[in-house]
Design a protein around this nucleic acid. Structure first.
Length: 255
DNA sequence: CGCAACAATGTGAGCGAACA
DNA sequence: TGTTCGCTCACATTGTTGCG
């Protein structure tokens, strides 16, 4: 929907409800200037949170639907996930005789889903459930999902003839500042569920004895050997910063 | 109520050092 | 070698203020 049309609808609802901009601002916890910007269609300088707050104050529901070149958006997101999976598989195979199955779907007792990577170490009879994340959004849901998959892993693995002595889990996160900060801000929760960190991962993969629960970042250095880095996002530097760093490639005015 | 200028604040990236 | 932490800087967002 066009920004002007969005603003016009907000204004229309507000007038219909007999409210002033200051009333909407009070109810949404924002300033009157923000309400005014929305109604005039100046959405480019506002956050989605601000739009939702104002909409909620007027009992308007806002659905956000990202679209990009038809189906290319899904392919872009999947490409990042696939690179992370490929990097993990390379690391497993470098560590030992791991057999790996990607995207293992399951439907057991009404519980449905898919394990990103299910790995099997035949000599140690170790089953490893790997959850891949290019971005950390909801920590609680993430850990609950991982726990659910670990609980069902025995039955899922038996489909391939893998009868495990023990099931381990690993959360592999794409390395990046944002992901590291998100993990750091919930470090107590993560460490209580996944005590082993990336430093212990290599050793455990070489000698997978006993149950383990790990959280590891997949470093860019490893991912670059497979193509592009796994960074969740790349900052677009403005001309001032680029000039300060002597970057000749950055064109002025491109942000 | 609309608009513009400015200030305050928050967020993320870049970088280097310290640590395991 | 991989991980963590702290600092600085750039940029985005929002509020305040004043004028029409």
């Amino acid at each position: 929907m066009h920004d002007l049309a969005f603003g016009a609808r907000v204004r229309g609802v507000r007038v219909r409800l007999g409210m002033r901009q200051v009333d909407v601002a009070t109810r949404s916890g924002l300033s009157t200037s923000t309400v005014s910007r929305i109604e005039r269609g100046h959405l480019g300088s506002l956050t989605i949170d601000a739009l939702r707050s104002v909409a909620k104050a007027l009992e308007i529901r806002v659905d956000l639907v990202p679209r990009w070149r038809g189906g290319d958006l899904d392919r872009l997101v999947n490409a990042n996930h696939s690179r992370l999976a490929q990097a993990c598989i390379e690391r497993l195979r470098a560590a030992g005789p791991w057999e790996v199955k990607p995207e293992v779907s399951f439907s057991i007792y009404g519980e449905r889903g898919a394990i990103d990577l299910l790995a099997w170490h035949p000599q140690r009879r170790a089953l490893l459930v790997i959850e891949l994340k290019t971005a950390i959004i909801d920590v609680g849901e993430l850990l609950a999902t991982l726990d659910r998959k670990a609980r069902l892993a025995d039955q899922i693995g038996s489909r391939f003839g893998w009868v495990a002595d023990h099931v381990s889990v690993a959360l592999v996160v794409a390395d990046g500042r944002t992901n590291r900060r998100r993990v750091a801000s919930h470090i107590d929760v993560f460490r209580s569920a996944l005590p082993l960190d990336g430093r212990r991962l290599g050793g455990w993969l070489r000698r997978p004895t006993g149950r383990a629960a790990m959280l590891a970042f997949m470093p860019d250095s490893h991912a670059r050997t497979l193509g592009q880095p796994l960074a969740v996002r790349q900052r677009v530097r403005g001309p001032r910063a680029a000039a300060r760093r002597g970057d000749p490639c950055t064109k002025p005015g491109v942000r």
